[in-house]
């Protein structure tokens, strides 16, 4: 057993690229669901907006990288939030859920359609749009950094990712302690009560959808920058539900919840992957039980089992408080 590789890989999952973009997506969901009570089952479409906003600006429209950032972080997510929010936010929560899940699938299917090849690159997606980003890379591309976890380019992505993530955490922490956050929480608890006290619930919900969507777009953009490619397959519905898992695991309506959730989720995924593979390779697990190609599936079974146990023994998530959960039943 190569324990060094196991530990190194787990740690990489804990703080690496997937951790960053799923943290960002889950921070957005936390804004939507944890604080405002909006059911967004299509966070993948906001992530896609970030990825395609940047890549289409650079590759399709020939704009520079900075315009791409503006398009991907601000313009695309805001438009999406408006399109999905205007018809549904006046209605019950379930309508937004339906519209978001539909929108995320529609976007993916339209983006991969061959007739739009000129615009979206269809199923191959768009590539090589983040050169400007790597031009600023101060790290040596040949060397490994941070205990040998990341090579130069990865280190640059991860470093900027951590910085952006810290800024997002700071924004959520600040706004949730402010009267603005108080109105969001009031809407989560009871929209009519907020309205009866003179709060424009519709507009606050729209703001939450926009800002949480922008966090998601940042996540999607990091995924695209990290691989220098934006592909429809990167934004399937599973992506949305991974972000949900991270949120529920960590605890909704807690600032650090999504980050802890994403870190643990990817820490465990990486750990089980390498650990199980080594067990198989070293003959601890007989071929009749599991072979090397089945490791990928088995680790998701284990994650599922873990979630079931969590739902039974700690439904409030790792950071959640039991007292708050108990208030739901009243």
């Amino acid at each position: 057993m190569d324990w060094g590789a196991i530990i190194q890989n787990s740690f990489r999952g804990f703080i690496g690229e997937p951790f960053i973009y799923f943290s960002l997506a889950a921070m957005g969901l936390n804004m939507h669901y944890g604080y405002t009570g909006l059911l967004n089952f299509g966070q993948a479409v906001f992530m896609a907006a970030g990825a395609y906003g940047l890549s289409m600006a650079v590759v399709t429209l020939g704009l520079n990288f900075w315009w791409g950032l503006l398009l991907g972080i601000v313009v695309f997510p805001l438009l999406l939030a408006l399109i999905m929010g205007v018809p549904t936010l006046r209605l019950r929560a379930d309508y937004l859920a339906i519209v978001t899940i539909a929108a995320s699938e529609m976007f993916r299917i339209i983006a991969r359609s061959p007739s739009l090849d000129r615009w979206t690159g269809s199923s191959d997606g768009l590539t090589a749009f983040a050169n400007t980003f790597y031009d600023f890379n101060p790290f040596d591309k040949q060397k490994r950094y941070f205990f040998g976890l990341f090579i130069g380019n990865q280190m640059w992505v991860v470093l900027i990712g951590w910085i952006v993530l810290s800024i997002v955490v700071l924004i959520v922490w600040m706004t949730m302690r402010s009267p603005w956050g108080r109105v969001l929480r009031a809407i989560r608890e009871d929209e009519d009560a907020a309205r009866s006290l003179g709060k424009n619930a519709y507009w606050f919900k729209m703001q939450s959808l926009m800002i949480g969507g922008m966090f998601g777009a940042l996540g999607g953009m990091f995924r695209a920058i990290g691989t220098q490619s934006a592909q429809p397959q990167n934004f399937i519905t599973d992506v949305t539900f991974f972000a949900w898992v991270a949120l529920i695991l960590g605890g909704a309506a807690k600032v650090g919840g999504p980050i802890a959730g994403a870190a643990i989720l990817y820490g465990i995924l990486n750990f089980t992957d390498v650990f199980l593979r080594q067990l198989v390779e070293n003959g601890y697990v007989p071929e009749s039980v599991m072979d090397g190609t089945q490791v990928g599936q088995v680790r998701f079974m284990l994650i599922g089992l873990g979630l079931i146990l969590l739902a039974i023994y700690r439904p409030q998530g790792i950071f959640g408080t039991k007292e708050e959960m108990a208030l739901d039943d009243r």
Binding site: S178, P179, W180, R182, R185, A186, E189, D190, L197, D328
Partner: peptide, 20 residues
């Protein structure tokens, strides 16, 4: 508003809040 403290419930009622 169950999952908000009593004081938060009260402060929510203030109108014309800059911090909103």
């Amino acid at each position: 508003l169950s999952k908000m403290t009593v004081i938060d419930n009260m402060c929510l009622g203030g109108t014309g809040q800059t911090g909103e």
